[in-house]
């Protein structure tokens, strides 16, 4: 017997869309509203989004990777690292047609939470929203990275203390 998938009531979530394509705003808003999300704001570039976040307390940001002016990667980097960041811990879903490994790795390394390849469908958007909700991650801040813990799985059998050779050099 297969288990019926579970759903959430998203009504109280606030979502910010960052994309330079008006059409994408319409599409994403339509999908999000059909999931019950009423509070959706949208911006056309990362710079506007930083300003918007000062008064719009987004629970989740959905941003395109390639946007004009301040692009998606620079936007997330700034959001995660700037001293005056309005919301450095907010989960970010990066949406893009660039699915090559280099782009996915670059997005991961600036601190995105989830990656969603275009074309967007309602089901895949729902799955990413659920992933953000069901798997909250620790936030890691180092000299070279700020963002959600990039390790998706914890291995309790790992003898440690740290998984990377470079970690050992910083132990006090």
């Amino acid at each position: 017997m297969t288990r019926r998938p579970m759903g959430y009531d998203y009504e109280r979530l606030k979502v910010l869309i960052v994309d330079d394509n008006r059409f994408m705003h319409e599409l994403l808003k339509t999908i999000l509203r059909s999931f019950g999300i009423k509070d959706v704001s949208s911006c056309y570039d990362g710079s506007d989004a930083i300003t918007e976040l000062k008064h719009f307390h987004a629970d989740i940001i959905i941003t395109d990777l390639e946007i004009q002016l301040l692009d998606g990667l620079d936007f997330v980097r700034l959001l995660r690292t700037a001293d005056d960041s309005p919301n450095r811990f907010v989960p970010v879903i990066m949406l893009t047609g660039h699915t090559e490994f280099t782009h996915v790795a670059a997005a991961r390394d600036v601190g995105i939470t989830e990656f969603l390849a275009k074309p967007v469908s309602a089901r895949r958007m729902y799955e990413r929203l659920n992933a953000v909700i069901e798997h909250p991650r620790d936030f890691v801040r180092t000299t070279s990275y700020a963002g959600p813990d990039r390790r998706r799985r914890q291995d309790p059998s790992y003898p440690g203390p740290f998984p990377r050779a470079t970690d050992r050099t910083t132990v006090q």
Partner: peptide
Amino acid sequence: MTRSASEIIPCPTDL
């Protein structure tokens, strides 16, 4: 034991 160059903030956003 701590790491001098890193900080881990436990799940700051639990939606």
